[in-house]
Simulated scan of single mutants.
Amino acid sequence: MNDKKIKELMIPSEKVAHVNLNNPLEHALLVLIKSGYSAIPVVDSDFKLKGLISMTLILDSILGIERIETEKLENKIVKDVIKDEAPSIREDESFIRGLKLSIDHPFLCVVNHEGVFTGILTRRAILKYINRYIHETNRESVRPM
């Protein structure tokens, strides 16, 4: 279990909903709604991880005193409301490190040694791997010798 690398369990970035720092906030909102996720990674033009954007952050940024000011969506970009700290892990790190970090986060952003976003590691992928490992270990321990 210790020798399993994050890269083997992650969902590649090509299959992950994400937005660019300079995308309009309205675009980010649409991506979040269409994907069904509450938060997604934000990258820069070099595809380096810059943070997370969420429905909550977007709604907070357009919330007025008496109403939701949707017209603000036209004038803001993702960079204006991003949470610039994203839970992340390098793709060459150990499974155990990913397990520890996933306790507090539903997913971890995965980056390479240059900080380029390469995918996500979900808590679901970790639990599936642990489940498979436990079942295989149990099967081996009950085999006759």
Rank of each mutant, 00 (worst) to 15 (best):
N75R: 09
K34I: 03
I53M: 04
I130G: 05
L29E: 03
I82P: 12
F117K: 10
H105M: 01
E91T: 01
S45R: 13
I82N: 12
H113Q: 14
K128Q: 14
K7D: 06
Y37F: 15
V16G: 07
D84P: 12
I53Y: 06
S88R: 15
N2H: 09
L52Y: 10
N22G: 07
V78N: 07
R97D: 02
L59F: 15
H113E: 15
L59T: 08
E136I: 00
T122L: 09
E14R: 14
I33N: 10
C109V: 03
E8K: 09
I6G: 05
T118N: 04
H135R: 15
R132C: 00
H27G: 00
M145E: 14
I53L: 07
I130N: 06
K128W: 06
V142T: 12
L21M: 15
L25S: 04
S61P: 05
N20L: 02
L9S: 08
F95Y: 10
S141H: 11
I33P: 00
S35N: 05
L57V: 00
T122N: 07
R123E: 11
Y37H: 14
G115S: 09
E26R: 10
V116M: 12
C109N: 12
A125N: 13
V110P: 09
Y129I: 01
I120R: 07
L108S: 08
K4L: 09
K100C: 05
V19A: 02
